[in-house]
Design a protein around this nucleic acid. Structure first.
Length: 289
DNA sequence: ACGCTTCGAGTTCTTGTCCG
DNA sequence: CGGACAAGAACTCGAAGCGT
């Protein structure tokens, strides 16, 4: 999930700019665009608190079992669409100002002085039991860096722009030295797997079941990658025998692959030194063309 | 499909503090 | 107490690719 709360890289580049909150939109008076951007100076619509309160009550009554599975960002209008009993709220939720109003009220409601300890412990509890939330816990290992990340951070200069970094990413795919960075990434993946296991072992009694399962799954995924059994960029480095097979594609073509390979391998092993050398050379020679 | 990664500069959101 | 403000956090933009 998102960043670790663990301190570290807090880029403190204190913005020195002064900004008067109300006039931030000076230049974009295009009231048209999205429809929901009433320029900041325009009079705000009055909050429809009565209606929103009724909506909240209805939502909880009608969709109670569904709500825990939906993100707070879930489009409320979808629910209103779905349940007939919520029909009276259609106008309310389709109002372009609805999102702002909902958010604003939510802001008031969640001011510290307005919520009880019961509220906050409930919210924290829901959150802290989640599997993926284990990534927030102190000591959770830092995610493995990928080859391309090593590549970009090594190649960029102090003046690199975001566009440059995009170019570097493209460049990475064709750089013959990419293997160097893949090795680094492999090493870091191993490090991540080891640390995950250690974290898991050291915190058995403190982790929730979903969290243990989450870690197990992450470790499983990493193991799969290490086997090369994923569809990660094929090395496309053909072996000498691969070259031989390709050049003799017609041979035993009617046999199942496994049998065919065995037969071909036998023939291959009987090749003369000179012939073998040719295929070895092909294999060692990256640019097959 | 979504989100994370690289980078910096600029923008927007959040939150603590001040004051009427 | 709540509105206004400032500080600082967090997101955004671009591009691309990989991981979950």
């Amino acid at each position: 999930m998102r960043g670790h709360l663990q301190t570290e890289s807090t880029t403190t580049m204190a913005s020195t700019r002064k900004r008067t909150r109300a006039s931030s939109s000076s230049s974009e008076d295009s009231d048209a665009d999205t429809g929901l951007n009433n320029s900041t100076n325009a009079p705000r619509k009055a909050l429809k608190v009565f209606e929103i309160r009724d909506l909240v009550t209805q939502l909880r009554a009608e969709c109670g079992s569904e709500l825990p599975r939906l993100s707070a960002r879930h489009d409320v209008s979808k629910l209103v669409e779905k349940y007939k009993s919520l029909e009276p709220f259609k106008d309310l939720v389709n109002d372009p100002d609805f999102d702002r109003q909902w958010k604003l009220l939510f802001g008031y409601a969640t001011r510290p002085k307005n919520i009880t300890l019961a509220d906050s412990t409930q919210i924290l509890n829901n959150f802290l039991e989640n599997g993926h939330v284990v990534t927030f816990f102190e000591g959770f290992p830092k995610k493995a860096r990928r080859a391309i990340d090593y590549y970009v951070s090594e190649k960029k200069t102090p003046n690199s722009t975001v566009a440059d970094s995009g170019k570097l990413r493209k460049q990475f795919t064709t750089d013959p030295d990419a293997e160097i960075y893949r090795k680094k990434a492999d090493a870091d993946r191993d490090r991540f797997a080891r640390e995950l296991q250690a974290f898991n072992d050291n915190n058995q009694e403190r982790l929730s079941e979903p969290q243990k399962e989450y870690i197990r799954q992450r470790i499983r995924n990493l193991a799969v990658k290490a086997d090369g059994t994923t569809k990660r960029p094929r090395k496309s480095r053909k072996t000498a025998f691969d070259w031989y097979k390709d050049l003799n594609a017609a041979e035993f073509a009617d046999l199942p692959e496994e049998k065919r390979d065995r037969k071909l391998l036998k023939k291959y092993n009987k090749l003369s030194e000179a012939e073998l050398a040719i295929f070895e050379k092909l294999a060692g020679n990256k640019k097959s063309e």
